[in-house]
Amino acid sequence: MASSSSPRRSLFRPCIDLHGGQVKQIVGGTLLDDNPEALKTNFVASKSPAEFAQLYREHGLVGGHVIKLGSGNDEAAKEALAVWPGGLQIGGGINDKNAREWIDAGAGKVIVTSFLFPGGNFDVERLKAIATIVGHERIVVDVSCRKRDDKWLVAMNKWQDITDMEVCKDSLDLLSEYCSEFLVHAADVEGLCQGIDEELVKKLGEWVQIPTTYAGGAKDISDLDLVERLSNGKVDLTYGSSLDIFGGKLVKFDELVERNKRALSP
């Protein structure tokens, strides 16, 4: 590991997005419950979720997120978690009734969003409840967001519904009292391979005090260096549709693995 005196390096964090029990890469803004025909899918994997989990385990890629996009994904998610107990995080429909079940199924952490916003309004008591059940160190709060005017607002329910929470220093400070990590999908650019939201990444670097992973728009391996520069190494990066293991032609998985090794070397 890098010495304590060295500045932190931004790392590549892997993902497994599940839709209909399969690993897919989807354009985030097209996940509409009331119009399923609008769904735009960039990639459907022939490999199982468990095979992706094994790949990440073999390369020591800790803290990847498994996201269940809708129903019909529980079995696939549990198969992935069983391959690498403690090595992956699980999100999608997590609440106070099932959080412990997912930890027991092998998740290192649970990722929670929609449960915290009944009717679109943040309820800190719900976050406290999950923290009491599994411990704050096992909670990732997903503050995936969409930009409205000059603000980023948390979006829930597969990024369809805007909540009353602005992503800003005050809200992140509050949330970090009850969780150990943030996950931030920039839903407006998710799956488009047109570049990251540089302004959001820069702000996250200024605001966050706990580990944070950004996802959305990454299209080149140099984006990892860009995120590192913009966030001062405080934000990690997930690649999706641009990555060769997800059918992309812009970024090679093996190169990201090597980049992580260099970043973590003394």
Rank of each mutant, 00 (worst) to 15 (best):
S222Y: 05
L224W: 03
T213M: 08
D220P: 06
W207E: 12
T213H: 07
D223V: 01
I221Y: 04
V208E: 06
L226M: 09
Y214T: 11
R229E: 15
G205E: 11
L200M: 14
E206D: 15
P211V: 08
L224I: 06
A215D: 07
A215H: 02
T212Q: 07
P211K: 10
S222F: 00
E199Y: 10
V201K: 02
E228G: 15
K219G: 03
R229Y: 10
K219S: 14
A215K: 00
E228V: 04
L204Y: 12
V227R: 11
K203H: 15
L226I: 04
G217M: 07
G205V: 03
K202H: 15
G217R: 04
G205F: 03
Y214C: 01
E228N: 15
G216W: 02
W207Y: 14
K219C: 13
K219Q: 10
S222W: 05
T213L: 07
W207D: 10
E199H: 13
L204T: 10
R229V: 04
D225C: 04
L204C: 14
S222P: 00
V227L: 11
L200I: 12
R229I: 08
S222V: 00
I210T: 00
A215I: 04
L204Q: 10
A215Q: 09
L224N: 08
I210D: 07
L224A: 02
E199T: 15
I221E: 12
S222K: 04
L224P: 05
